[in-house]
Design a protein around this nucleic acid. Structure first.
Length: 419
DNA sequence: TCTGGGGTCCTAGGACCC
DNA sequence: TCTGGGGTCCTAGGACCC
């Protein structure tokens, strides 16, 4: 049951990756504050990872956007400073922030590495003024940790999130239901959560340009053309949203996947299999760490001309065996590959179930049991000595990493399109 | 030196069953 | 005896988020 007058905060780290790198640099003797100059965090173009992951506010003024190629970002600003990502630092910075937030309420949902929802249910007698509280939290994070956040305040998560996005950086905004018309409706419709680059042109075609235009459009017409998504964004435009701040009972993981853009085009089956094996090593280890088996294995690929396709297969019995999953992935790949040069390969394991059930049946199949014990032993060594401690001999001198894809120990909160 | 990687959810079409 | 129709499962593709 959701109370109608909840108080929800949305905390959003300003230019998260960039701020965190900047603070780290300043703390280590650097004198330049990257946040004050046109700068971005970006991948390495030599390995074909050259996109903007985060931008400073001055970089934004040049029209630089997250996700855009560094090549094009540099054309917009010749003096652009580009720094590499530091993922370990980002996880530590995120955790440090959450530790502070926990002092104010136990009801915290980590929505992504740099965003949290806070629910202040049952605190009416503790906090007299929530706006004052928001300033206190914001300033506390800045003083203790050195980076700034925006705080959005409202009665549901959607409105709080829109509020925190209003004006940056280092700001507190409210967006209560009575303020929707004045503060939210004039905004461009693409600012609304869940209106992405495919939906925007469809809305524009219907003469919808602002969130207010969407809110006041006939919902039946939206439903006819955009199906359930049309109803969802119409509700959002009207501030209607009632999901819980999920601080516990987190939804179970639906699947684990790893994918990679290779530093060169893969042109032969054998190399493709090696990349797939490397991805399966990472994904299946994550699966085992979760205590799960999967029943569905999917392989996806992107060609050098950016065409995507995928293929999947349901297994007769669930598994978490590296060998079994890799063999399935090889077969799937061989069945779909049309022979073009490959830029990107991915493996996704889903339809998960607990691995405990299958412990017993391992005894039936000597081969499966052996393979499971081997996986376990290798996982333990990698946990203790690092992922490079054990590698399959095929990777020796291959120039390929034996375990591709990220998210291992510190499985940080997943980012999703669900509130 | 041009375009990432981790997710969740939805839809459409075809197979298959009764 | 000139072609229904509902339900479910499977698969591929694409939407969205950060």
């Amino acid at each position: 049951m959701v109370s109608s007058n909840r108080i929800i905060f949305h905390i959003d780290v300003n230019s998260a990756y960039l701020s965190w790198t900047s603070v780290y640099n300043l703390q280590h003797g650097d004198t330049l504050d990257l946040r004050m100059v046109p700068s971005v965090v970006g991948g390495d173009p030599r390995s074909r990872h050259g996109i903007v992951l985060a931008k400073s506010i001055p970089a934004k003024k040049y029209g630089i956007q997250t996700g855009e190629p560094l090549f094009s970002a540099r054309q917009k600003c010749r003096d652009l400073i580009i720094v590499p990502p530091m993922y370990d630092l980002y996880i530590r910075s995120s955790n440090a922030m959450v530790e502070i937030l926990r002092e104010y309420t136990p009801y915290i949902q980590r929505f992504s590495i740099d965003e949290c929802f806070l629910d202040f249910a049952g605190t009416e007698n503790i906090y007299k003024d929530y706006i004052e509280l928001a300033y206190k939290i914001k300033d506390r994070i800045r003083e203790d940790l050195g980076f700034t956040v925006n705080v959005g305040i409202s009665t549901n998560k959607l409105l709080a999130k829109v509020a925190s996005d209003l004006e940056k950086p280092d700001k507190v905004h409210t967006l209560f239901p009575h303020e929707i018309r004045e503060k939210m409706w004039p905004l461009p419709v693409e600012n609304l959560f869940m209106v992405g680059r495919a939906t925007l042109p469809k809305l524009n075609k219907m003469n919808i340009y602002t969130i207010g235009d969407l809110a006041n459009h006939d919902v039946e017409i939206l439903k006819a053309s955009l199906k359930s998504h049309g109803v969802l964004i119409w509700n959002y435009a009207n501030g209607i949203e009632d999901s819980e701040v999920r601080s516990c009972n987190l939804p179970e993981v639906k699947g684990v996947g790893n994918s990679t853009t290779t530093s060169f085009d893969v042109a032969d089956r054998k190399t493709a299999h090696m990349v797939l094996l490397s991805l399966v090593e990472t994904a299946s280890m994550r699966l085992r760490n979760l205590g799960n088996c999967c029943r569905l294995v999917s392989v996806s690929l992107k060609t050098s001309s950016f065409v995507n396709y995928s293929h999947q297969r349901k297994l007769l019995t669930p598994t978490n065996s590296t060998r079994k999953i890799a063999e399935t992935a090889y077969n799937l790949f061989d069945e779909i590959w049309r022979g073009e040069p490959i830029r990107h390969l991915g493996v996704y394991l889903s339809e998960l179930c607990s691995s405990e059930f299958y412990q017993i049946s391992f005894l039936d199949d000597e081969d499966t049991e052996k393979s499971s014990r081997l996986d376990k032993a290798i996982d333990a060594i990698r946990l203790k000595y690092g992922p490079k401690a054990v590698m399959r001999s095929v990777f020796l001198h291959s120039g390929l990493k034996p375990m591709m894809g990220g998210v291992t120990e510190d499985d940080y909160p997943v980012m999703t399109s669900m509130l």
